[in-house]
Design a protein around this nucleic acid. Structure first.
Lengths: 149, 149
DNA sequence: CGCCGACTATTTGTATACGAACAAATCGCG
DNA sequence: CGCGATTTGTTCGTATACAAATAGTCGGCG
């Protein structure tokens, strides 16, 4: 009975193979990348936290929500990330004098130093993640991901 | 002073552009896919829950940990997913007579019916996610993601 | 047979993610 | 100027994810 049902379902599923669906492959690729990140990035900084730090370094001080938009995080997510960066002493927040709704976020000196030192690791992480691909494939992958983002 | 520091950091960052890093692009692509999924999949089933349901349908009843391995989830994650599927009445668990460590997971009738009905949606979700790409690009993307997974 | 290593499941803690609801401040348009 | 729409930030609830610690069970090997 289980066998019969199994065959029926398999027939219904037809060409739908989970392991060839883009969503499933995205999740697997992200998992491998996250594992590489955890192994190579010092001080337990996560990929999301690193995105916020790198952007803060590029942008200089900016409002919390703007930082979120520039790092593809919604308001609720960026709040948690920023709060944890502050708790680690890598970022600081102060009220914006011109707009009292805003929370102005900036790197601390320690945060600035950390970014400078972690950039080499970040490049290693990207390199190791893309290691199975040759140069042309790497460029292709980045191009295609950018197209569907 | 901020300006001076900003320029210095930008120089240090050199060719490191966050938006061209594979990890950041993976996160953005996953975000868009997840949003499409939430819009098209009925009954608030999440991508992860769908992975478990589709695999259960393929495999027939199996142990919780095996289901986790086949869906790229660790033991802690698959437990939560299965518990929520059970709470919704889509899956059921019983002890395995042969191996008392195991929790045998199976689809309920409602779960089986759901998979049959949701397959069309799953195909739409993949189609819409890949919509910006032509056929050759789609094949390329899946191939490259499988290589770095 | 008995024991040890491996497997299975659970629990706890931390960190994303996002929708929804909310309050405060600002902006824009009449 | 004033009020409604928008922006900003916070909080709550739900759902992945994974490491680490724990406990029960199984299997094989001496």
């Amino acid at each position: 009975m289980n066998k019969a049902r199994h065959l029926t379902v398999a027939t219904q599923q037809g060409d739908y193979a989970l392991e060839r669906q883009v969503g499933f492959l995205l999740r697997e690729a992200t998992q491998r990348h996250t594992a590489i990140f955890a192994r190579l990035m010092p001080d337990e900084v996560t990929p999301t936290q690193w995105a916020a730090l790198a952007r803060l370094s590029e942008l200089g001080p900016c409002s919390q929500n703007l930082l979120g938009r520039r790092t593809a995080m919604d308001a609720a997510t960026i709040k948690g990330v920023v709060d944890r960066l502050i708790a680690r002493g890598l970022a600081q927040a102060r009220p914006d004098a011109r707009d009292q709704r805003r929370r102005a976020i900036a790197l601390t000196e320690a945060g600035d130093a950390f970014v400078g030192q972690a950039l080499a690791r970040a490049r290693q992480i990207t390199e190791e993640t893309l290691q199975p691909l040759d140069a042309a494939e790497r460029a292709q992958l980045l191009r295609l991901l950018a197209k569907i983002k």
